[in-house]
Design a binder for these strands. Sequence first.
DNA 1: CTCTCCCT
Length: 842
Amino acid sequence: MLLPIEDILPQLTSSLQTHNSVVIQAPPGAGKTTRVPLALLDAPWLRGKGIVMLEPRRLAATNAARWMASILGEEAGGTVGYTIRFDRKVSRQTRVEVVTEGVLTRRLQTDPLLEGVGAVIFDEFHERSIHADLALALCRDVQQGLREELRIIVMSATLEAAPVAGLLGDAPIITSEGRSFSVEIRHLPEDSRDPLPIAVSRAIRTALAVTEGDILAFLPGVGEIRRCHQFLQEGEALHSAPLIAPLYGDLPFAEQERAILSADRRKVVLATNIAETSLTIEGVRVVIDSGFCRRLRFDPGSGLDRLVTERISAASATQRAGRAGRLGPGTCFRLWSEHTQRTLIPADPPEIATSDLTPVALDLAAWGVTDASTLSWLTPPPKSSLEEGRQLLVQLEALDRHGMITEVGRRMAELPVHPRLAHMLTRAVGRGVGPLACDVAAIMSERDLVKASGGTALERSESDMLVRVEVLNGWRKGRRFAGGDAATCRTVDRSAQHLRRLLNIGKEHAVVGADAETVGLLLAWAYPDRIALRRGDGGRRYLLAGGRGALLSERSSVHDEPLLVAHVVERGERGDDLIRQASVLTLETFRREFSDGIVTGRNVFWDEREGRVVSCEEERFGALVLGSRPSAATADEVRSALVEGIVRGPGLSALSWSTAARRFRARVRLMARVFPDEGWPNLSDEALLATLGEWLGPQLDGVRRLADAAAVDLLPPLQGLLPWNLLRRLDEGAPTHLVVPSGSRVPIDYGDDGTPTLAVKLQEMFGLAETPTVAWGRVPVVVHLLSPAGRPLQVTADLRGFWNGAYQEVKKEMRGRYPKHPWPDDPWTAIPTRRTKGHERK
DNA sequence: CTCTCCCT
């Protein structure tokens, strides 16, 4: 039977005659993985060179190679071969080599020109793994530099093709039909509010009654799968008594097969995302999609990972539904509404946008690139994550200060582990603890070989890693062990052996015995930023050298250790992070090995509780304070600590604002408001606080306590902020006093913000019609007219109106109360005075 | 109520 892809092969071969890049968009079932490489073998531009095809998974890579070989009547390793970690089948005859992603990145580093390779094919590119994105950027760099004739073919199922075609210099886009059956999609009228396991189990009961064929249900994680399984077993018996099979990555192989292979009766598979792309399940006609998945998110601020449960993307929902249409027409039950469907993000963010980029930063440095933006990216790696990765690489000795790769860095880049572990390995080999380091690196790189669900409580230990090393060694000696997983032990052991070969560690260096002290040191080389010191309260709270607080999990084997390395840490939802695994680090070892990073320096800081500046000599490693004793400090240090303390703590109100200082400030604020273009300084709270060190600093010489700082007269330093010409203009524009008709000089109150008011006895203002002003007539002064006893009688900004009107009322009332003072009928002609009538006559 | 998935 002809595959749909056959129709586009002629177009593909002709496009590649004229273009060096092509994008193929073909849905699942089109047959692109096996047909495209073979169709290109005889292309004239290939000139007998080989083709490399990138596959995201090991199983897919070997299957594709075997299938293509069988089409040619050969076995894998002839014309068609493959290379995956631990397994390689290629020969001199091999022209098509299928590789997994890490293999290609590594090969690009050792053979940057890709000698002997005429074409690179990226299969399943829509998955946007970090490796595929990086490899594409590097291949494009090769193509644009020295190998213009290198062909790049990007194959993708659901990816929007235009952006990647644009990246490849407007590559032609060739679209193929897929071959799958229609799937009927059923949404709920409204989003379910029940917990996922309940909602899914209910949907399964319905599907069992109204559909036929095996059922595949997608849940976010193991916990939900377990509970859903329970709900199905409890309560009413299930229609057609099906086989219920959980399916997730941690499941032993035999149980995974039970879920994948067809059964003798109807089957219900409860799966994580593993069934979305990695595994195909036989016999599925019905999909039930919870709409959620669990993913790991890298948090650039903390350098830590976090597991989150999130709604899936629209692309993911399409992919999951498609799993019901491989045998014939199928049905997909979506446990969300059509309205919610329209709110789904179109596609999952590419891995490069959400991952730890330390490995990418090292690969780029090894490639000779210090500025990632000089390469072409479909999604550029986020600058903050990349920068954080670079800083870590400097700490790990892989990069120098200029971001150039070091000799150590080159050796690290050749090792197939995270740069942290690669650094540990290079250090360990020089110290004769290479074999143990290989075990530790392998354990850190693979699934946890101690199953938390095993039910066996871990024994108390100085190191969660030592516990695992001992489980591994127990497995090697064929011993029975509790809580360990044999399949993972086998993978870890193979990985450790592989590392030993790469590091030229022979068999003679067997691991004789591991001790907590050595394990702790190894991990400290990998995680110097996660060396952790217990907080003063002696509980399970720690401070990491990187500066974050963390809580040691109750499930860790480690207890009561003052200093440790936190090698598995999860970012907390809020507040402290969680240390899942830790190993003791003796203070002695730490001091000896990390003496370069331990610095002694003065710390002069504001002690809020004491309200004063404290200075001491501290011994620090990153954020950790190892020791501290009182010491002297320079005047500058004290001053800036004091200023910072005031700014962060009590603020301006802690200073003593004399009436004179307050009035001066208010006058300047008035002038600044009325004459904004004259260069008046900004004396608002915010501005004064922001520049506190500059204007007040010089007055604070020798001051350590807040109480002493509060005694400083603020007027002179504030005056110092004005040049002499503005000081003079201030006296004219915003005078301190006004002379009133009685001849008195009365002070003007400018409030805090510069609103002038004048409080004056009524009798002193007789005859004055015009309301007084400041700022050369631009700002009226609000007049508070006072009784002879100084009590407010009237507030007015219109004196003339007052004399002509309200005055008569005031007069009647006041005459009786203050008979010795003048209350004339005609205020216009009365003589203004501050005295009583008696004084006036004399 | 800890633990989606893949890979050198």
